[in-house]
């Protein structure tokens, strides 16, 4: 399935993500990594779960308000529910072992030129591309 090429909207979104990462460091002194922030509100809770829950709530609330006030966000899931659940479990295992995901390693860690994050990002980008190739062009979809 084709999706629309959206360079300007995607760039604007990326800049907002970077702005949020900068502000979270400036105010809370924290890396804006979704894996780390989310892990702190999954039991056993971390002691500072308050700001984490607030950040997560804000990140859900903004798209909700945006679409409720008439904005359109394209969304479609081109895979089966079973594959979605399997993907979710695998992502949860991977980001916990690898201590981070696209936001933590790919944006914040890379911005700090952390060697760990640069390696992690190269590995997961390559692994994702290989998986998409296998799923779509060898297995013919899942």
């Amino acid at each position: 399935m084709e999706t629309e090429f959206t360079p300007f909207l995607s760039l604007a979104g990326g800049i907002l993500i970077g702005l949020a990462a900068t502000l979270l460091m400036a105010f809370h002194g924290r890396i804006a990594g979704m894996t780390g922030i989310l892990a702190g509100i999954i039991p056993p809770l971390s002691a500072d779960w308050g700001w984490r829950l607030a950040f997560l709530a804000g990140s859900v609330l903004a798209p909700l308000i945006f679409t409720a006030s008439g904005g359109h966000i394209a969304f479609s899931v081109p895979i089966s529910a079973t594959a979605l659940v399997a993907g979710g479990l695998i992502v949860g295992i991977g980001v916990t072992l690898g201590s981070g995901c696209t936001s933590g390693h790919g944006v914040c860690g890379m911005a700090r030129l952390s060697p760990r994050s640069i390696v992690a990002t190269l590995v997961f980008m390559a692994s994702t591309a290989a998986t998409v190739f296998i799923v779509r062009h060898i297995l013919g979809g899942i």
């Binding site: 980001v95 994702t128 998986t131």
Partner: peptide, 13 residues
């Protein structure tokens, strides 16, 4: 961990 994450990301998007 990063390689496993990529498999899940590649499956689910």
């Amino acid at each position: 961990g990063s390689a496993i994450f990529g498999i899940g990301w590649g499956i689910s998007g």
